[in-house]
Design a protein around this nucleic acid. Structure first.
Length: 291
DNA sequence: CCGGTCACCTGAGTGC
DNA sequence: TGCACTCAGGTGACCG
């Protein structure tokens, strides 16, 4: 689900709420989300911080452990109260749960994290990891393994890239530029929504081979990436279907110019926006404005 | 190395 | 109301 802005908002919420708290217990309802032997190693550790890594969330734990969460399409974190049986076994109807306020109605909870909150932190209860489509994964890494994972799988994000290095990246690939932008090992943090918006803002057709672009095109793409992602972070991310950070829904979807608007009129030239597939993903673009 | 396709999952929306 | 079908913000495996 989330791309860089959504992951940024989620990580900041979790960091604020949980920094310095001790993880006292974990329940795993779906063992592909977090391997049970990883889960067993976590209780007793201090959550030293939560931060964004590309479009993933990294939880730094004491003793050099890192829990890395890839939310994929529908993963989300939500605080709530729970029953001894866990949310899936709550016998009441969702309406009754809302009425007495003790537990949120929480279908699709896959994991639960319990905490001894740090002094001065508000007790927000249990942190649930929910994931309708079950694509999300949490993985535990020891220090050196984490560094290796990061080196091999997560490239610099648009804020970390310097323009010269980004020009080199663009020059070195024959992939469609949209595929390159979405390749986390080339540049991290960008997914289908933001790649679509960035290329529209840059006036570049999504299927254009990257090495066909000029250095100025590359500069424009990087500058637009930063601009759009920054605005999206300040809008709390984009809520299309079900994105919601612990602090609530984002609003940046209101500022999307083309994503999800195939057939509507281009906001610049007024002609209908086209749609096609690029690397298996839906692209929306303006034939007239994007060359 | 590259692009295309599929698999992984569930739910929402659409059209008949 | 029900059914069949399409689509979805991601990513890794496999194939030619």
């Amino acid at each position: 689900m989330p791309e860089l802005p959504e992951a940024q908002v989620i990580a900041a919420d979790l960091d604020r709420a949980l920094k310095g708290s001790v993880i006292t217990g974990i329940t795993v309802w779906f063992s592909k989300a977090l391997r049970p032997d990883d889960a067993e190693r976590i209780p007793g550790h201090v959550l030293e911080g939560a931060e964004r890594l590309g479009k993933m969330i990294r939880f730094r734990l004491s003793e050099d452990l890192n829990l890395v969460c890839s939310l994929r399409m529908t993963g989300q974190f939500v605080f709530g109260r729970e029953y001894e049986d866990g949310p899936e076994k709550d016998p009441r109807t969702p309406a009754a749960r809302i009425r007495d306020g003790r537990a949120p109605p929480l279908p699709h909870a896959r994991l639960a994290f319990r905490f001894k909150y740090a002094p001065g932190k508000e007790d927000l209860g249990t942190l649930f990891y929910r994931d309708v489509r079950k694509f999300g994964r949490l993985t535990l890494f020891e220090g050196p393994d984490f560094m290796k994972f990061k080196r091999d799988s997560v490239a610099r994000d648009p804020f970390e890239f310097d323009p010269g290095a980004f020009r080199e990246l663009v020059k070195s690939s024959r992939k469609p530029v949209k595929t390159l932008l979405m390749d986390q090992r080339s540049i991290s943090g960008i997914g289908n929504i933001y790649a679509t918006e960035i290329l529209f803002a840059s006036g570049i057709h999504p299927s254009r081979p990257a090495n066909d672009l000029s250095p100025k095109d590359a500069d424009r793409i990087l500058a637009n990436s930063r601009e759009i992602l920054k605005l999206a972070v300040s809008g709390g991310g984009s809520t299309i279907a079900n994105f919601e950070a612990p602090s609530g829904k984002g609003s940046f979807q209101l500022f999307h110019k083309v994503y999800g608007k195939k057939g509507e009129n281009c906001p610049v030239c007024g002609r209908p926006l086209s749609g096609s597939k690029t690397g298996g993903r839906t692209s929306v673009y303006c034939e007239n404005c994007q060359k």
